[in-house]
Each structure stands twice: as C-alpha cells, then as structure tokens.
Design a protein around this nucleic acid. Structure first.
Length: 493
DNA sequence: CCGCTTATCT
DNA sequence: AAGATAAGCG
C-alpha cells in the first residue's frame, strides 16, 4: 500500500464522485448517496486496482451492518478503471463541463503528477484538491501548493471527503459570496435529492406514508394542522439543514425547504429554531463563559443527533457519535478512536510555511474553509494516521496536538476535558520536542467550517452477496457500461 | 402578510 | 416542556 501507486484522479460532482480510494469512497458513499449523489470512480494506476483486502474489509463491514447492496452495486458499476494517465485525463476532459472538482493523490514529488495537476488546472479549469499520505507538509513546494485549492495529509478522512462536494458546488456556481453560498448549497442538495430517488435508490423504505384515517397520531403533517412532533428523524433533518446552510444563514424559510417535509410550516420551524437557539446558547455559555471559542456537547446517552459542537458563533460542524456511525463504529471497535481532526489548531510549522494541511492554500476558487475530518483511526490501511490539529476522541475529550507528523513521538496533546457542564479542564500532557512548542495557548483564529452532511445509514437496501462483489471487482474491475453517462449524469444537461 | 425574531400562551 | 400563536419590526 505504501507509495508507488500510479496516478489516481478523482473528481467530485454534486452528484457523483470519482475516487481512487476505496475506503473513502465507501464512507463517502454512505453519506453522499444519502443526499442522492450518484457516483463514479476513475482510477489510473498502472493496472493495479484496489487491494483485495481493502475490498473485503469494506464489504465485510457493509455486510455486517446490513447495508445496502444497491448503492454498493451502483458504485461498483460506476467504476471506470483506466490504465494510463492520459486515459484518465481523456475521461475527465470529455466530461469537464460536468465535473466540478478533481481530487488527486498524486505525490507532489512525482513529476508527471505535477504535470497532471497543471494540466487539469489549466486545460480543464477544474479545481484541484490533492491528498498525499506522505511527508511533512512544510516540505511541499509552493508551486505545488499553488495548483491546488486544498491539500490533505493522509489519512484523509471520510468526513473531509464528504465535504468535497460542497467545494464542487463552489466551482459549479462560479464565484459566490458567502451569503450566496448557503442558498447555493441548498439548491444543489435539492437537486441531488431528486437525482437520488431516480437514479440510485428507487424505493427507499424512508417514506412512512400516512394512511389518513380518523385519528392518525402520525408525525406527518399532511393537511390538518396537527401539532408537529419533532421526533428524531425530524430533528435530524433540522440539524442537517442547519449545518448545510450554516448556522448564520439558517433561517426558517430555507430550513423548511431544505428539510423538505411536506406540510411542515415555516412557523413550526421558526418555533423550533427558537428553542434550538436557546438550547445552543445555554450550552454555549456553560462551557466557555467568556470565550469566543466554544464547544457544545450534548453527548452521552442522549440523542446522537444533538452530539455536535460549535466553533465560533457563525459556523459549526457535526461530530457523529460513534453509535451514530456504524461504519466507523465497527472499525473503532477494533482500532479505537473516532477522531476529529482540525488542522488549524496548531502546527505552527505548517502555518509558517503557508501551507496548513487541509486548509486553503489558494484563493482562486474562493475556498475559505478548512475541512474538518474524522480520522477513523488506525485501520489496517492506515496504521499511523497523521493529524495535526484538534481531534475528538470517543471518550468525549478534545485533544489538540499532532501525531504521525514527526517521526516517533507518541502522545503529545493538549487535552481539554469536556466533562459535565461547567468547568473546562485544560491540562498539558506533553508537547513535541521540536516543531510545535506553543500550542493552543490561545484559541487559534476561528476556523471557518464547512458544514458537513449528517448521515443516515439506514434503509439503503438489502444485503449484498460479498462473494459476488468480490468476483465482480476481482475480474478486471472495469465497469463502464454504455449507459454510464446517462446514469451518472442523470438529469444533468 | 414577507419573513425573521421575540414574547407569550397552552 | 414542547410547540403554537401573537406581536414587533425592518
């Protein structure tokens, strides 16, 4: 798995993903497909496909979680594998007006890869995000940095991944102000949702349609203005909408539209929003009474839906709890820790070099956001995950520090204990000897956040026959059906 | 009513 | 307490 892979190109559209990285694809798939994103995969890596162990690993997880075969099959069918870089470029070029974003994992030191970046940027006018498992970010040449809008250190996390499509949105709409971005996102989500119903999940047991009888205590609010019951599903949608729109753009009307619940009135949402804000403010002040840097946890045995925290007043990211994320939970059971990884926290070396992993390195596309990520922890493929910044551990503690960046330091982090409402403990555990010596002394400049998509892994379909999948993938792994574009670009132009 | 917010009511 | 309704306001 180390090094030596060829060229991989990945482009993300609102509706689909090209990706070389299987586990990320799967994880992203679960989320993206939920909002209706068909996907495709394109890889050019000298004839080498994803490893069987990787496939098996993921397939096992999916199987054990009773997860859908349909999206999985759809995804597999959407795979296009090409042998050479130029083939990959051809594929992209053919569709460059339909793609929004290209993600690569071309190592920066790879000359051809460098050319590839340049080519994509110049010829296709596509935004490029690069990932690399390797090396210290400060070693990256500025030239490289200037050709990508974002740079990820591996392990790039699924959470980061799922936010990529939003960058695609940015590209799609050209330059957009921050104010416009919210509605822009909304539009694409709605669009994607339509695509989902049509292309991916023909029938989702999501409907829960009401048989309008005399007194149906259903939570549905079809016609009569029954009192709205904000059950978990409703709350989830609500929070999704908030996240998507951004907390400072989340107004009742748009929330209603994003939630897309028939009969749900703006007034109801407004009322709920009011309560929600009160709840937020309470938790806000409780943890950090006099700080702009606020964390809000409603964790533990409560609703997973409300398990989020907020950075700053204007933006928030979600942190899926472990039991809310079956895939990760499975992995975490063997390898521990759901981590949230937020590159702004520290890493002064990287900042000084002007290249913060995961942060903006280029303003061409107006990307102002960093990509929060959740490191699924030492999976077999990523024994030593690299992270710089903050991370959320499963024990509810937020750590800031770094691992895997320098050589063989082990634990070095500032641990912020977020125990029960009130007193925040901040204890210096240990600091790395070299690069980072003043960390989190004061809150970093508030990282702008990309709202991430909450996910719902349920009701995606039936189980899949693993063996069949294995055979399918094992033999050639090239799936490029005649109607591929019709499927993938369904409803597009 | 145009929509968002805040206050009040049940 | 949760949600609806009223009222204030740009």
């Amino acid at each position: 798995m180390h090094g030596g892979y060829g060229y991989t190109l990945m482009a993300v559209n609102v509706r689909f993903v090209w990706s070389p990285i299987w586990h990320m694809c799967f994880a992203a798939l679960q989320r993206i497909v939920k909002i209706g994103t068909p996907f495709a995969r394109l890889t050019s890596r000298g004839g080498h496909g994803p490893s069987q162990s990787s496939i098996h690993h993921l397939a096992t997880i999916w199987s054990s979680k009773k997860h859908a075969s349909r999206p999985l099959l759809a995804w597999l069918k959407g795979v296009l594998k090409v042998e050479r870089r130029n083939d990959a470029l051809d594929v992209i070029e053919d569709r460059k007006y339909r793609l929004n974003l290209v993600v690569t994992d071309i190592p920066w030191f790879n000359t051809n890869g460098f050319d590839t970046l340049q080519y994509i940027g110049n010829e296709f006018k596509l935004a490029v995000i690069s990932t690399s498992r390797n090396e210290n970010a400060k070693l990256l040449p500025a030239d490289f940095a200037s050709r990508v809008i974002l740079y990820f250190l591996k392990s790039m996390s699924v959470s980061s991944f799922e936010t990529l499509w939003q960058h695609a949105c940015v590209k799609e709409k050209g330059k957009a102000t921050n104010a416009e971005r919210a509605s822009m996102l909304y539009e694409n989500v709605i669009e994607a949702s339509l695509g989902n119903t049509l292309a991916v999940c023909e029938d989702t047991p999501e409907q829960t349609e009401v048989t309008a009888d005399d007194d149906s205590p259903q939570k549905n609010k079809k016609k009569n203005k029954k009192r709205v019951v904000w059950d978990e599903k409703m709350k989830r949608k609500f929070l999704e909408a908030i996240e998507l729109l951004g907390s400072d753009h989340a107004f009742p009307k748009k929330i209603v539209e994003v939630m897309n619940v028939p009969g749900l009135t703006r007034e109801s949402v407004a009322s709920h929003l009011q309560k929600h804000r009160i709840t937020m403010k309470r938790a806000h002040g409780a943890l950090f009474p006099s700080s702009q840097f606020a964390l809000n946890f409603n964790s533990s045995q409560g609703n997973p839906e409300t398990n989020f925290y907020q950075l700053g007043s204007s933006s928030s990211i979600s942190v899926p709890s472990s039991n809310f994320s079956p895939l990760f939970h499975t992995e975490a059971s063997t390898s521990r820790s759901n981590l949230i990884h937020e590159p702004y926290g520290l890493g002064s070396a990287q900042v000084a070099s002007g290249l913060v992993p995961g942060s903006r390195v280029n303003q061409t596309y107006g990307i102002e956001t960093i990509l929060p990520s959740i490191d699924i922890g030492g999976s077999s493929s990523n024994p030593n995950s690299t992270y710089v910044g903050f991370r959320l551990a499963v024990n509810g503690k937020v750590e800031s520090g770094q691992t895997g960046v320098s050589s063989n330091d082990e634990k070095k982090a500032v641990v912020v204990n977020l125990s029960a409402e009130g007193a925040e403990n901040e204890s210096l555990v240990q600091y790395p000897s070299t690069s980072v010596d003043h960390v989190a002394q004061q809150p970093p400049s508030l990282p702008p956040m990309v709202p991430s998509i909450l996910h719902d892994f349920e009701s995606l379909g039936a189980d899949v026959e693993i063996d069949a999948l294995m055979n399918m993938v094992g033999s050639g792994g090239i799936f490029w059906e005649d109607d591929f574009d019709d499927t993938i670009f369904h409803n597009t132009d």
